[in-house]
Deep mutational scan, measured.
Amino acid sequence: KAKLLVLLYAFVATDADTICIGYHANNSTDTVDTILEKNVAVTHSVNLLEDSHNGKLCKLKGIAPLQLGKCNITGWLLGNPECDSLLPARSWSYIVETPNSENGACYPGDLIDYEELREQLSSVSSLERFEIFPKESSWPNHTFNGVTVSCSHRGKSSFYRNLLWLTKKGDSYPKLTNSYVNNKGKEVLVLWGVHHPSSSDEQQSLYSNGNAYVSVASSNYNRRFTPEIAARPKVRDQHGRMNYYWTLLEPGDTIIFEATGNLIAPWYAFALSRGFESGIITSNASMHECNTKCQTPQGAINSNLPFQNIHPVTIGECPKYVRSTKLRMVTGLRNIPSIQYRGLFGAIAGFIEGGWTGMIDGWYGYHHQNEQGSGYAADQKSTQNAINGITNKVNSVIEKMNTQFTAVGKEFNNLEKRMENLNKKVDDGFLDIWTYNAELLVLLENERTLDFHDLNVKNLYEKVKSQLKNNAKEIGNGCFEFYHKCDNECMESVRNGTYDYPKYSEESKLNR
């Protein structure tokens, strides 16, 4: 008799109507990190870190770059004969040098303040090359056809396309004075040089004057150069050297050249137009028929994500570079809930034993079982409120962090190594801060989002509990077992918050 009662009780308990509160689960393989956990499985997430590029040089917003090819900045601007293909260059979106560009200054020497000139050019998007001192009329008392084997072109001695090597005419090199007034309405880049012979005999042979000088002056520039005559090792078949100089001439300003020898005179100059998204990159990537809004030396990035880990040097509207390998923000729920887990921000989770793959029309909802059958029903209101809140948060985070910009490298010469090392340390410090901030932001927001979901499920549970009161009992896994019969209409009233407690209280009292 006792065995019969136990079996009867078990049958009745199993047959009781139930309603459970749960949440969506799926077959997603997404994982995120939080402050407290690593690799948390979630139903949905968004990636904030771009880690792919196309490996190509592309047009930037429809404008092609200027590819210097086998030449570098120095060779292009001075007019190395091997860089003749660059003479027609007028406009570009950015400038590309190759790491091993070999054609710079063909006659050995240095372009002074080269690093600063590169910085200036990094904001130039177009130029006009014009004859600042016409070759045939500007130097009537001097020979202007100086050439050298060091600047050979097609097997013949030649010289820079933008400079003139002035030497004596006959047996004399009379003092020369020439000036140019900038009437271009924009900055003009003027380049010139000073020749330093290897011996007094060479000085006399070329310029006749043993104590020659070169003077260059404008409103913002004033220097006097004296040739340094000295024996030097042979470089590119030359014992002599040429140093090259430049200045930016403001609109309306005048530049005056005065010399008694050794002047490498300007022939062509450049009127410059600035462009905020221009820059110089060093890259071996090849040019393709493609378009982008962000270019790196590795390749083009076409992404609206706020961060990238491809390269710190970028041109155009680019994500911020960070050292992170993963920045994924959760938008959905835990896919593998932890039992009795309390989140960092106070939300209680884990009283549900598992997510439901059968509930596909919402994030949170119900599963019921009664004599009429069983089924899932999503709670659309709480789901939609959660979707709206999380979507707004993700968009806000992306908008705040998605300050796209150009980031170019800084140039230092060989004598500025300590400054370069200090600059690298400062840049590394800023990069570490950006990386830390980005990672911390994602970790915190992921923790908040998961706790937010847990709290929403808990609130749904409490909503049902407050309606049923003692007409049902909690069975410990997020479910309630009714003390009365609850048909589909009754189940719907529980879900929509209109459950009639008094209607079922007498039946429940008897069954309790």
Rank of each mutant, 00 (worst) to 15 (best):
residue 4 L to R: 02
residue 5 L to P: 03
residue 6 V to H: 01
residue 8 L to G: 15
residue 14 T to S: 11
residue 15 D to R: 12
residue 16 A to D: 13
residue 17 D to N: 12
residue 18 T to I: 13
residue 18 T to R: 12
residue 21 I to P: 00
residue 22 G to T: 01
residue 22 G to Q: 04
residue 25 A to M: 06
residue 27 N to T: 05
residue 29 T to M: 09
residue 29 T to S: 12
residue 34 T to M: 08
residue 37 E to T: 06
residue 43 T to Y: 07
residue 47 N to C: 03
residue 47 N to L: 03
residue 48 L to N: 05
residue 50 E to M: 01
residue 54 N to V: 06
residue 58 C to P: 02
residue 58 C to R: 01
residue 62 G to N: 14
residue 64 A to N: 13
residue 67 Q to I: 13
residue 67 Q to Y: 11
residue 68 L to A: 01
residue 69 G to S: 10
residue 70 K to G: 15
residue 71 C to W: 07
residue 72 N to E: 12
residue 73 I to V: 15
residue 74 T to R: 09
residue 76 W to T: 05
residue 79 G to R: 01
residue 80 N to R: 03
residue 84 D to A: 07
residue 86 L to V: 10
residue 86 L to N: 02
residue 88 P to G: 12
residue 89 A to K: 13
residue 93 S to Y: 07
residue 93 S to N: 02
residue 93 S to C: 10
residue 97 E to Y: 05
residue 99 P to C: 00
residue 100 N to F: 15
residue 101 S to Q: 15
residue 104 G to F: 02
residue 105 A to R: 00
residue 105 A to H: 04
residue 105 A to S: 12
residue 107 Y to E: 05
residue 109 G to A: 06
residue 109 G to W: 10
residue 110 D to E: 14
residue 110 D to C: 03
residue 115 E to V: 05
residue 116 E to L: 01
residue 117 L to G: 03
residue 119 E to C: 06
residue 124 V to I: 15
residue 127 L to M: 13
residue 127 L to P: 00
residue 128 E to G: 02
residue 129 R to Q: 06
residue 131 E to Y: 03
residue 133 F to D: 05
residue 134 P to T: 10
residue 136 E to Y: 08
residue 137 S to T: 06
residue 142 H to W: 08
residue 148 T to M: 05
residue 148 T to R: 02
residue 154 R to A: 11
residue 157 S to I: 08
residue 162 N to I: 01
residue 162 N to D: 06
residue 165 W to N: 04
residue 167 T to C: 09
residue 169 K to N: 10
residue 171 D to E: 15
residue 175 K to W: 08
residue 175 K to R: 07
residue 176 L to H: 03
residue 181 V to L: 11
residue 182 N to H: 05
residue 196 H to G: 06
residue 197 P to T: 06
residue 200 S to Y: 12
residue 201 D to A: 10
residue 205 S to W: 00
residue 208 S to V: 09
residue 208 S to L: 11
residue 209 N to V: 14
residue 212 A to E: 00
residue 218 S to D: 12
residue 220 N to R: 12
residue 222 N to A: 11
residue 222 N to V: 14
residue 222 N to Q: 06
residue 226 T to G: 01
residue 226 T to F: 13
residue 228 E to I: 05
residue 230 A to W: 14
residue 232 R to S: 02
residue 239 H to M: 14
residue 241 R to Y: 05
residue 246 W to S: 02
residue 248 L to N: 02
residue 249 L to G: 00
residue 250 E to I: 09
residue 250 E to Q: 13
residue 251 P to V: 02
residue 254 T to M: 05
residue 254 T to F: 06
residue 262 N to A: 12
residue 263 L to Q: 02
residue 267 W to C: 11
residue 270 F to Y: 09
residue 271 A to E: 09
residue 271 A to P: 00
residue 273 S to T: 13
residue 275 G to R: 12
residue 275 G to I: 04
residue 278 S to P: 00
residue 278 S to G: 15
residue 278 S to T: 11
residue 281 I to V: 04
